[in-house]
Design a protein around this nucleic acid. Structure first.
Length: 477
RNA sequence: CGGGGUGUGGCCCAGUUGGUCUAAGGCGUCUGGUUUGGGACCAGAAGAUCGAGAGUUCGAAUCUCUCCACCCCGACCA
């Protein structure tokens, strides 16, 4: 029987959103719950998030960021303090009106993000310039009652990390914004995902921020996913919450603040960037199981084959997340497909033939290639193969993204674009609204490297007015 | 919130001119056996207040009304 004749996953080319949902379900990443827009993340899916989290956590710690935890509830009045902030988040707030059997006099919002939850306390903690910089991070759940939920990419409740920092000067704060953006780019590289990093437009920036930067990811259907963000908040929140410090000059100053976050949306990005018609393809770094051993035996060879498999597992388990699929009653073919759907990067097929010859048959999920490797060389080969799988996934994703960014010069060329496009833009807010209304397309990012250079076309592709920079535009999730 | 759609065992779904529906089939599950190099086969078994409520009727999964939930396409967003 041909591979995947028994198909449970819609082909990408037929219906990408359906494919995505199929993969999320079939790979047992997550399923929907009784609560609208809230997902149940299953062990396999959560493990991927935990591996991403571990990598980011390590980098934050290296950079001297400390973890804190603030309450899930935020007094509504705190949220309402910053005007742009509340306007941005009010429509999607979940609010607690009753507790302990009584109606609350002061209503509590479930945090949609924690600026308003944390900064009153920051005002207390920060007194002198000697208390700065303050660089804290929290791993938390937040709730945003979005109109249109989507597995991992936009659930009403989601897990993320949010960093909240305060500096004496704008220069220091802005420098950190870019540093964090770099860390996010690195974490995505860890997932073998290329990102396009830079600044957001006025329309697209975070509610309450002076400047928002983003790491944009291209999904396989050509849409954009905002992979992470890093904001310079200026003194907007400091003013409202009274976060100021006494400087060496003996004068009181407002602090300059940043916030930055990455959520388990990144898991959705992994699916949408690396997945194929057979399901998930995971880069080794974030694969819950990196090597799956499928024993192939007959009754009389059962014990012999299994013990050979377990010996190999024991040999490799120090270096890899590895497992022997010892389930009885399933055929090898079933197991092959089972683990391919789940994206396990490497499979070792071991039958009597391999046992006799002291070899293993190695299958790569990224390209479907099979090769036979002598057991004594396996350890060395795996080192190279794992790196190669990572690089090949990264390259495929990069090639795809680059191939799907077109340069356009005028409004007339917008229709029929599949992926993203680059165009010289006046950065006029009204023109962006037009673009959104007409085509459902928005600006995604002004790449950092394009920040300082002249646009290729002096005329804005929408308004014809003088353009400022070359921006990337796309439909998005 | 606008547009569209769907609710039937764990999952997919047939049935909707009312009447052998005492609800069919597939997947999955369980038991026994035979199998195991690309999603095995045979035999048997368990599992359903047909989204909820009210109504019409001798009779409702099927018709009427009300409500609820979820999904998809938009506006919003990590």
């Amino acid at each position: 029987m041909a591979i995947n004749e028994k198909r449970t996953i819609t082909k990408q080319s037929i219906d990408f959103p359906a494919w995505y949902q199929d993969v999320v379900r079939e790979a047992e990443l997550a399923e929907s719950s009784e609560v609208r827009g809230c997902g149940i993340v299953r062990p396999y899916g959560l493990k991927i998030w935990e591996l991403i989290k571990a990598e980011l956590s390590r980098r934050l710690e290296d950079d001297g960021v400390e973890n804190v935890y603030f309450p899930i509830f935020v007094p509504l009045e705190n949220l309402e303090a910053e005007k742009d902030h509340v306007e941005g988040f009010a429509p999607e707030l979940a609010i607690v009106t009753h507790a302990g059997g009584e109606e609350l006099t002061n209503k509590l919002a479930i945090r949609p993000t924690s600026e308003a939850a944390m900064y009153k306390t920051y005002a207390k903690w920060i007194q002198s310039y000697k208390d700065l910089p303050l660089r804290l991070n929290q791993w938390a759940n937040v709730v945003r009652w979005e109109k249109r939920p989507r597995a991992f990419l936009r659930w009403s409740e989601f897990l993320w990390q949010e960093g909240h920092t305060a500096f004496a000067t704008e220069e220091e704060a802005r420098a950190e914004v870019m540093k964090m953006l770099g860390i996010y780019q690195d974490v995505y590289s860890f997932m073998a995902i290329p990102t396009f990093t830079g600044r957001k437009s006025e329309n697209e920036k975070f509610a309450g921020a002076v400047m928002t930067t983003t790491a944009e990811v291209m999904a396989k259907d050509g849409k954009a996913i905002q992979g992470a963000t890093s904001h310079y908040l200026g003194t907007n929140f400091a003013e409202v919450f009274g976060v100021n410090y006494l400087g060496a000059d003996g004068v009181s100053h407002l602090v300059h603040q940043n916030s930055w976050g990455l959520s388990w949306r990144s898991v959705g990005a992994v699916v949408m960037v690396h997945g194929d018609d057979n399901g998930l393809r995971l880069p080794p770094n974030i694969a819950p199981i990196q090597i799956i051993i499928v024993p192939i035996y007959k009754d009389e060879s059962h014990d012999q084959v299994l013990s050979f498999c377990n010996k190999i597992k024991d040999d490799l388990k120090v270096d890899y997340r590895i497992k022997v699929d010892e389930r009885e009653g399933q055929t090898p073919g079933f197991k092959f497909n089972y683990w391919e759907v789940r994206g396990v990067p490497v499979r070792l097929e071991i039958g009597l033939k391999e046992v006799a010859e002291g070899k293993v048959t190695l299958f790569r999920r990224d390209n479907g290639a099979k090769e036979v490797i002598i057991v004594t060389e396996l350890k060395n080969s795996l080192k190279t193969i794992m790196i190669d799988i990572h690089n090949s996934l990264y390259k495929q994703a990069t090639d795809f993204a680059v191939a799907n960014i077109n340069r356009i010069e005028s409004w007339d060329e917008i229709g029929g674009q599949v992926g993203w496009f680059e165009a010289s833009w006046s950065e006029d807010s009204e023109s962006e609204k037009q673009l959104k209304e007409k085509f459902g397309i928005v600006s995604r990012v002004l790449l950092s490297e394009k920040e300082g250079i002249e646009p290729k076309n002096k005329k804005c592709f929408i308004t014809g007015k003088p353009s400022k920079h070359d921006w990337l535009f796309a439909k998005c999730y």
